[in-house]
């Protein structure tokens, strides 16, 4: 049975020295350089996150940019190990996070389909069975024969999306994936995504599209500055989010101070 269980999970990012200049310039914009005595070293990306998701649930994840949605998904996927707390995930995880990285630039479209499918947990036989339909859905035609180095960004998305959505996941972790591609593709993509979400037994879906959220998810979690501030029926949580929108976006200083 698919299941995700997180208990008191903390996750920090250590901001390297080489980024200080950039950080300084960002901070200088915010509220003047002089007030900062020490450089920020640690960004608290997630703080005491406890959440339990059972098979059959489809959960939305909302919050501002930098609230910790993607980070939380990556903890659930087992990509980020938490600094404190406990993570238990049962079931085959299929993460669909971004469709613009993770390509072998010198390899052809076909080779990239095979590679990505392998990495997402498909067996070689399954891949050969599905590869025609993946290619067809990607609608890339002859472009599949050339190295993906020559692709446009929209073509990357098509390729990655077509491949990634061909898996049969138990646990599906989605991170705002309708970002690129032309109108026609987005229409097809939406259909395929619906289909994928139907097939998965557990879905967590991070998004900014509040209008589509109620259609997919009966339960939604609201994150703010790395903490869960609400977890309940989608309609209620979305209302809380839209009404309680803070005047200013959280700053890096907030994150490092750990408020």
């Amino acid at each position: 049975m698919a299941r995700i269980h997180l208990e008191n999970v903390d996750l920090e990012f250590h901001v390297g020295a080489e980024r200080q200049d950039t950080l300084n310039s960002v901070l200088a914009h915010g509220f003047g350089l002089r007030r900062r005595r020490r450089e920020p070293r640690t960004v608290k990306a997630l703080q005491s996150i406890s959440v339990s998701i059972r098979a059959g649930e489809r959960v939305g994840l909302i919050g501002h940019n930098g609230a910790g949605k993607s980070t939380l998904l990556k903890v659930m996927a087992g990509i980020y190990p938490p600094h404190r707390g406990h993570v238990a995930v049962e079931g085959h995880v299929c993460p669909l996070f971004e469709f613009v990285t993770g390509f072998e630039m010198e390899a052809t479209g076909w080779e990239n389909i095979r590679t990505r499918a392998l990495l997402l947990g498909m067996m070689p036989k399954e891949i050969e069975r599905k590869i025609e339909s993946i290619a067809k859905f990607s609608n890339l035609g002859d472009f599949l024969d050339i190295p993906v180095r020559h692709y446009s960004s929209g073509m990357y998305v098509r390729l990655a999306f077509a491949t990634s959505t061909a898996v049969d996941p138990q646990i599906l972790l989605l991170d705002e994936v309708m970002a690129a591609g032309d109108v026609e593709f987005i229409e097809c993509a939406r259909e395929r995504m619906n289909d994928l979400m139907e097939r998965a037994s557990l879905v967590v879906f991070a998004t900014h599209s509040l209008d589509v959220l109620p259609r997919f998810c009966e339960r939604t979690i609201l994150l703010r500055q790395g903490r869960i501030v609400a977890d309940g029926p989608t309609a209620e949580v979305v209302r809380l989010y839209t009404e309680g929108r803070p005047v200013r976006e959280p700053t890096l200083a907030d994150a490092t101070r750990g408020v």
Binding site: I79, V93, P95, T101, G102, F103, L119, L120
Partner: peptide, 10 residues
Amino acid sequence: CEGYIKQISL
């Protein structure tokens, strides 16, 4: 393999 490590849970 950064692109893989950051988005695939293997």
